[in-house]
Design a protein around this nucleic acid. Structure first.
Length: 437
RNA sequence: UCCUCAGUAGCUCAAUGGUAGAGCAUUCGGCUGUUAACCGAAGGGUUGUAGGUUCGAGUCCUACCUGAGGAGCCA
């Protein structure tokens, strides 16, 4: 080991004029006879190095001159501000150590040229090394951290819910079945919400944050079979509370991303002006008003039906920030939604549709707190009562009005990054016809 | 499950029913400021699979496989 300090590329600005060591991989190499320009990436950034034939040992110069893409290499040299270099800083090579050389007989498959989506998805484990994927996944990290910070500093306790569950929360058709020691069937969770109601009545305000599984045979840019969802739940709370918390959360997350990940948004060519306008209050409309707007815009939707993807896009086009749509017909909502006391045919539920046509990112509402009504709904939905006995207990012992929602992380990432397809918002996406790598 | 589109070199794509091509990548050579560097040369193919039409099929027809986009459903 040398006594030269090792830095990461994002720290170059504060080390100008110093001799440092950077451990990374060869991103690209440009050469011109007696001068070489290796571009090194280290996961934090990319820096151009400069090597001159007459100032480096001959064998090192030759080894670097013929180095292959994505070979791992540790470089040492002096950092210098340089207008001509991409990134603004350059490293004058003094020495280097090649850790592993990618053989030219089997070169790195992802070249700096265009590739098709199938090829890139097959090489997802390597595709993650590209700049665009770095930017997206850093924004994802920021979003997740912001979500946690928001709830942690607003009186919520993180209480995670199980992934193996014995029964469905919503419909049974979208559950992945798991063979549990050959003894019983369990399912991968499609929502932590039923358990959240138990933890909220125990802790007041809780949230769970984890992967969720839906066996929907959906093959669109908005769907994954495994996705991450954060679900807050609050005791002594109503539909209005859900709307306010969802609005506060979304604004907080957007603000954080704008503050801390501006460079990544720039790399992704995101129009940040559209994100700057995401401030409270969000427009709040009823399902009835939404249907009116859709009819005016030519949709064929009939009252009582759920919105399709095109309907959501049409609606979100009307506003410059997310729009909240509440009081959907009870028939399109899950069994546990509290009916509106003034209009029992609609549910006290709300969906938040992201702007720019990114679709539903939040869904939630007020839950039924009355035992008799909940029992009736279970019956109407043909759900096995014994599986929900513990859930009914929550209405027997200190039942209170309570409410919560779920927010899909990947749709948020896609929206804030302004990218077309949700598959790039998670390191290893699971989709209808893709479970590898 | 349904609808639409696409499979040609390692990658991205061309090729009127008539000799299967280019750029990048790889190899060799050249170049002291390159910016997806550039210049010259070389190697690289059972055109997704199986049938069919035709003197002749990458191209037309049928079936299947694989992938992509969308619908329904959803965050």
């Amino acid at each position: 080991m040398s006594d030269i300090p090792r830095i990461t590329i994002d720290q170059c600005g504060s080390h100008a004029g110093e001799t440092v060591e950077i451990a990374g991989w060869l991103y690209n190499l440009r050469k011109s006879g007696k001068i070489i320009f290796p571009l090194i990436r280290d996961g934090r950034g990319i820096i151009q190095c400069v090597g001159l034939k007459n100032s480096l040992p001959e064998d090192l110069f030759n080894a670097l001159k013929d180095l292959t893409q994505e070979s791992s290499v540790i470089v040492r040299g002096k950092i210098r501000a340089e207008q001509r270099a991409p990134g603004g800083y350059e490293l004058d090579l003094e020495s280097a150590e090649i850790v592993q050389r990618v053989p030219e007989s089997h070169p790195y498959p992802i070249t700096p040229k265009d590739h098709g989506i199938e090829f890139l998805m097959d090489h997802r484990h390597l595709w993650l090394r590209s700049r665009r994927q770095h930017a997206i996944l850093r924004v994802r990290h920021e979003i997740i951290k912001a979500i946690r910070d928001y709830f942690d500093s607003n009186g919520f306790t993180l209480v995670d819910t199980p992934i193996f569950t014995p029964a469905a929360c919503e419909g049974t058709t979208t559950l992945f079945e798991v063979n549990y020691f050959d003894e019983e069937k369990v399912y991968l969770t499609q929502s932590g919400q039923l358990y959240n109601e138990a933890t909220a009545l125990a802790f007041g305000k809780t949230y769970c944050f984890g992967p969720t599984f839906r066996a929907e045979k959906s093959k669109t840019r908005r769907h994954l079979t495994e996705f991450w969802m954060v679900e807050p739940e609050m005791a002594y709370a109503t539909l209005e509370d859900v709307k306010n918390v969802a609005e506060g959360l979304i604004c907080f997350v957007v603000q954080r991303v704008l503050e801390n990940r501006k460079n990544d948004l720039t790399d992704l060519e995101r129009d940040t002006g559209k994100l700057e306008s995401i401030k409270p209050p969000f427009p709040r409309i009823s399902y009835d008003q939404a249907v009116e707007i859709l009819h005016r815009k030519g949709s064929q939707i009939e009252w009582g039906g759920d919105f399709g993807g095109t309907d959501e896009t049409l609606l979100s086009e009307e506003f410059d920030r997310p729009v909240m749509v509440d009081r959907y017909p009870s028939q399109v909502k899950a069994f546990y939604f509290q009916p509106d006391p003034d209009r029992p045919e609609v549910a006290l539920g709300v969906d938040v549709l992201a702007s720019e046509g990114y679709g539903e990112i939040v869904g939630g509402g007020q839950r039924i707190h009355d035992l008799a009504l909940l029992e009736k709904r279970l019956e109407e939905h043909n759900l096995p009562r014994e599986a929900f006995d513990w859930y009914l207990d929550l209405r027997r012992f200190g039942s209170v009005p309570h409410a919560g929602f779920g927010m899909g992380v990947e749709r948020c990432v896609a929206w804030l990054c302004g990218i077309e397809h949700i598959r790039e918002t998670i390191a290893f996406p699971r989709m209808l016809y893709r479970t590898r790598p």
